[in-house]
Design a protein around this nucleic acid. Sequence first.
DNA 1: GTACATCAAATCGTATACGATCAGTGTGCG
DNA 2: CGCACACTGATCGTATACGATTTGATGTAC
Lengths: 223, 223
Amino acid sequence: MGTVTTTSKSEAAYQLVSERITNGAYSPGYRLVLGTIADELGCSVVPVREAIRRLEAEGLVHFTRNVGATVAHVDSTLYLHTMQTLMIIEPAATALAADSMDAAWLARARELNEKMRQCLEDFDPVAFTRMNTEFHQLLYGQCPNPHILDLVQRGWRRLAAMRASSFTHIPYRARESVKEHDALLDLIADHATPAQIEAACREHRAHTLNSYLKAAGMEPSAI
Amino acid sequence: MGTVTTTSKSEAAYQLVSERITNGAYSPGYRLVLGTIADELGCSVVPVREAIRRLEAEGLVHFTRNVGATVAHVDSTLYLHTMQTLMIIEPAATALAADSMDAAWLARARELNEKMRQCLEDFDPVAFTRMNTEFHQLLYGQCPNPHILDLVQRGWRRLAAMRASSFTHIPYRARESVKEHDALLDLIADHATPAQIEAACREHRAHTLNSYLKAAGMEPSAI
DNA sequence: GTACATCAAATCGTATACGATCAGTGTGCG
DNA sequence: CGCACACTGATCGTATACGATTTGATGTAC
């Protein structure tokens, strides 16, 4: 009501389902029945259908003609593929955003990383994950190329959906992560070239990926 | 009736409009009216609407609520952004596909590139462009990561739509392109590492981009 | 007991209909 | 003469309705 922007029912349906998938209310495999969701939203099936198809395009739901939609299953392969995609795009996006990383930006990034460190002390993994996402958004968020930005955001959304299904809660390398963030910020503070930033960022992501592979008992090259 | 595969009307609408955009029948700015397209297809507006929204998600169509859809305008910025995105993803996809580049593959690639060279002799730019697309598909097509593959294909689709609107028909550096293709194939034949392939591929794309920038009278860094 | 054919319930796909919204146009007032 | 406002036509957004398709269950023959 407070919103001036006229939100269509289709948009509302999209946001509702999207939210429920990313926060885990709908687990992978959950059957998304158009009529049910429509009833819940107090609208007809048409807008819901559109929302589901959009989510399908994003890879969050699996859709079969004349059968229906289910929340996309997450398996190891899918996770690795998403990570691999992000490993390519996110560093590039971050490098492109380098221009807008001024002193004020750096201060915010430092502050956020300190908060993450605090979360470690407090054993608060949920807040840590949230802030980690926020930190990375800060990194690539000013990327001037909207297409690239969009791709990165989609990747993170998918990761969020996977995490919500408690798939990737492996013994997290949170401590190393924070250190690597600091090192990256040091690099930026020293006016590193975009190429250097990109390399460091990719390293960071590769470490995360490798630690997952190791935890899952796979070879580092098993992707 | 003849078709065994049940193609939905929505899919038919998607393919029709998509085709017309990519081959230039619908120029940028062209107004896509649901009812009109629906009549033409002999179906109702609902499937058409879904098709349009899908095209919007791909960036081929611009959509305004309660107003309608138009074929997306292509300007220099959009072109550069798309090129920049492809410059990041396509080389990565190609590197990932390196494993499946065996002798038979190499032979096909060589043959295709020779055909392109022949197109140059014959002054047939349309065929050249088609084969260039095909050549690049051969390069990244066996990328085992479906997400990355999808991103690359979307990029090329958008480029095709732009070309159809006769936007990027700048004096083409076709001759250099063919040479670079050969050099790349030599590299692959010599069992280069994926990293080397990626670098070479990125170089190739950077050259294309720079030649466009130069032709448009922009600085190479103006992206 | 198993395999297959048949049937019914559930769900999707699309047509049609109507209300909502927006761009363009004409009219009245300043 | 120019601007603001109401009106109109076009188009979209969504509800409802019905046919099409699939799935799972039931019953029957072997």
